[in-house]
Amino acid sequence: MTSDTSVPVARVRDLPDLLGVIPHLLGFHPEESMVLIVIDNGRIELTARADLGDLQPANHLELMIDRMLLRWPAAGMWLVAYAAEERAGWALLRRGRKHLGDAMIGDPACVSGGRYRVGDCWGPQFDHDPRSSAAAASATLHGLQARPRRGMLAEQLRADPGQAATVEACWFRALQRAMPLDSSAWVRELLGALASALRDPAGLGPDELAWLGLLINHPQARDQAVLSLEPAAADSWVELWSRVVRACPHGTQSQPLAVLALAAWVNGNGALQTVCLEELEAQGVRPGLQDMLEDLNEGIIPPSEWDDLRVRFRDLLEEADAG
Rank of each mutant, 00 (worst) to 15 (best):
T2M: 09
T5F: 08
T5N: 14
P8H: 00
P8R: 00
V9C: 01
R11C: 11
R13A: 13
D14E: 06
P16Y: 06
D17K: 01
L18W: 03
L25C: 02
E32H: 15
S33N: 09
M34S: 03
D40A: 10
N41K: 09
R43K: 11
R43I: 12
I44A: 00
T47N: 02
T47G: 10
A48Q: 05
D51P: 13
P57Y: 01
A58R: 09
H60N: 14
E62V: 01
E62N: 02
L63E: 11
M64W: 11
L70I: 12
R71F: 00
A75F: 00
V80D: 05
Y82H: 13
A83H: 04
E86N: 05
A88N: 14
G89Y: 08
G89H: 09
G89V: 04
W90L: 14
L92A: 03
L93D: 06
R94L: 14
R94P: 05
R95T: 08
G96K: 06
G96T: 05
R97N: 07
L100C: 10
D102V: 04
D102Y: 02
M104T: 12
C110Y: 03
G113H: 12
R115W: 08
V118C: 08
G119W: 10
G119Q: 12
D129C: 05
R131E: 13
R131P: 05
R131T: 15
A136C: 06
A137E: 15
T140C: 10
L141N: 11
R147I: 10
P148F: 13
R150Y: 11
G151P: 06
P161L: 08
Q163T: 11
A164Q: 15
A164R: 15
E168V: 09
C170T: 06
W171Y: 14
F172I: 09
A174C: 07
L175S: 02
R177Y: 03
M179Y: 13
M179R: 14
P180M: 03
L181T: 12
S183H: 15
A185N: 13
W186L: 09
E189S: 14
S196F: 06
S196L: 08
A197P: 04
A197E: 06
P206D: 15
D207I: 04
D207V: 01
G213C: 13
L215S: 05
Q220Y: 06
S228D: 11
P231G: 13
S236E: 08
S236C: 07
W237L: 02
L240S: 10
R243W: 04
V244I: 05
R246F: 01
R246Q: 07
A247S: 15
C248Y: 00
H250T: 12
H250Y: 11
G251R: 03
T252M: 11
A258S: 14
V259N: 03
A261N: 02
N267I: 04
G268A: 00
G268W: 02
A271N: 10
A271E: 07
L272P: 02
V275F: 07
V275N: 03
C276K: 13
L277K: 04
E281V: 15
E281A: 13
A282K: 13
A282F: 09
A282M: 07
G284Y: 02
V285N: 09
R286L: 12
G288N: 06
Q290P: 09
M292W: 09
L293I: 04
E294H: 08
E294C: 07
D295P: 00
L296N: 00
I300R: 07
W306Q: 13
D307G: 08
F313R: 15
R314L: 13
D315L: 06
D315Q: 10
L316C: 07
L316S: 14
L317D: 01
E319K: 12
A322S: 11
